[in-house]
Amino acid sequence: DVEEQIRRLEEVLKKNQPVTWNGTTYTDPNEIKKVIEELRKSM
């Protein structure tokens, strides 16, 4: 579920933690925001 994935990513973003997405680890909050944007567009 895309909305659930977005929620999880936003939680990680709030905690300022790195997130691994599709085999890539993002540590930059701006990169994580881009991933969230892409997910929103795909909905």
Rank of each mutant, 00 (worst) to 15 (best):
E38I: 10
E4H: 06
V35P: 00
V35A: 05
K33F: 10
N16L: 08
E4N: 07
N30K: 10
T24E: 11
Q17K: 09
D1A: 13
V2P: 06
I6M: 03
E11M: 08
Y26Q: 01
V35K: 04
V35E: 02
N22G: 11
E37F: 05
N30W: 12
T24Q: 14
R40F: 05
K14I: 13
N22T: 02
E3A: 12
E10P: 00
E37K: 05
E4I: 06
T20H: 11
E37Q: 10
R7E: 07
L13V: 08
R40A: 04
I36V: 06
D28H: 05
L39I: 06
E38K: 06
Q17I: 14
S42C: 09
Q5D: 13
N22K: 06
T25A: 05
E37S: 06
L13W: 06
V35Y: 04
I32H: 00
M43W: 06
I36S: 00
R8L: 14
K34P: 01
L39V: 03
R7Y: 06
P29L: 07
V19C: 03
E11T: 06
T25L: 15
Q5N: 05
T20M: 12
I32E: 00
E38V: 06
N22P: 02
T24P: 01
K41R: 11
G23A: 02
N30G: 12
E10R: 04
V12Y: 15
T20Y: 13
P18K: 09
V19E: 02
K41E: 12
K41Y: 10
W21L: 11
E4V: 04
D28N: 08
T24Y: 11
P18D: 07
L39E: 01
L39T: 01
I6C: 00
E38N: 09
E37T: 06
Y26S: 01
T27E: 09
M43G: 07
R8I: 15
D1K: 08
K33V: 09
L9R: 00
E11I: 04
Q17W: 11
I6D: 01
L9I: 06
L13I: 11
T25P: 03
V19I: 14
R40D: 02
N16V: 04
E10Y: 05
V2R: 05
K33G: 06
D1E: 14
P18I: 10
E31A: 10
D1Q: 10
V19S: 03
L9T: 00
K41I: 12
L13K: 01
D28P: 01
E11Y: 05
V2D: 03
I6R: 01
R8D: 07
V2T: 10
Q17M: 15
W21H: 10
R7M: 09
N30A: 14
V12N: 15
G23F: 02
S42Q: 15
I32C: 01
E37N: 06
Y26P: 01
K14C: 09
N22L: 12
N22R: 05
V2F: 11
E4S: 07
T27P: 02
P18A: 13
L9C: 01
I6K: 01
N16I: 04
R8S: 08
V2S: 04
V19Q: 02
L39N: 00
P29C: 03
V2W: 11
Q5P: 02
R40Q: 08
P18S: 13
W21I: 15
T25I: 13
N22S: 04
K33I: 13
G23P: 01
L13T: 03
S42D: 09
E11Q: 07
T25H: 09
E37V: 05
R8E: 13
V12G: 15
I6S: 01
K33C: 08
E4K: 06
N30T: 12
L39W: 02
Q17R: 07
Q17S: 08
V19L: 12
E11G: 05
I32S: 00
K14Y: 12
V12F: 15
G23Q: 03
E31F: 07
W21S: 02
E38W: 12
D28R: 02
V12I: 14
K33N: 06
I36D: 00
V35N: 01
E3D: 08
D28W: 02
N22A: 08
M43Q: 14
D28K: 04
E3K: 10
I32W: 03
N16E: 09
E31M: 10
E37I: 05
T20A: 07
T25F: 14
D28T: 08
L9E: 00
P29K: 07
V35R: 03
Q17F: 15
K14S: 14
I36L: 10
N16Y: 05
Q17E: 15
I36N: 00
L13P: 00
P18F: 07
W21D: 02
R8A: 13
E11D: 11
Y26V: 05
K14G: 09
L9Y: 03
P18Q: 13
L13M: 11
W21C: 04
W21G: 02
I6Y: 02
I36Y: 02
R7C: 04
E3P: 06
N30V: 13
K34M: 11
E3N: 05
L13S: 04
I6P: 00
T25D: 06
K34C: 09
M43F: 09
I6L: 07
R40L: 10
E38Y: 10
L9P: 00
S42F: 12
P29M: 14
N16P: 06
T25V: 15
W21M: 08
I6F: 02
W21T: 02
I36G: 00
K41N: 14
K14A: 14
R40T: 06
E10K: 05
N30Q: 13
V12M: 15
R8H: 13
S42A: 12
I32D: 00
D1G: 13
L39D: 00
E38R: 06
N16D: 08
G23M: 02
T25G: 02
E10H: 04
K33H: 07
D28A: 04
S42E: 12
V12K: 15
I32G: 01
K34G: 05
Y26T: 03
N22M: 14
Q5A: 13
E4Q: 07
D1I: 12
I36T: 01
E38T: 07
P29A: 11
E3W: 14
K14W: 08
E3G: 10
K15V: 07
K34L: 12
